[in-house]
Amino acid sequence: MGKIKGAIVINEERCKGCDLCAVACPLHLIAPSGKVNHRGYPYVVQDDAEGRCTGCTACAIVCPDGCISVYRVKSE
């Protein structure tokens, strides 16, 4: 059975750190980075060292600023 693997790319300069994606992620893989971007907003990062992200797009759909691109692949 194939396994679905996903990855997200967060546009850190566009992110405003509202944390809505962190709440929306069913696996709680997104968290504040503790850093701020050039506009002064604390941006979020995905912490997915184990590769658990499934690319469900929930984080990207709730993102008000369209910062998140989602990639998904079905591996054999």
């Binding site: 990855a7 691109s69 990639y71």
Partner: peptide, 13 residues
């Protein structure tokens, strides 16, 4: 490897 244009499923309109 996952982050490739052909695997893109959602992005800013």
């Amino acid at each position: 490897e996952i982050i490739a244009p052909e695997n893109l499923v959602y992005h800013k309109p």
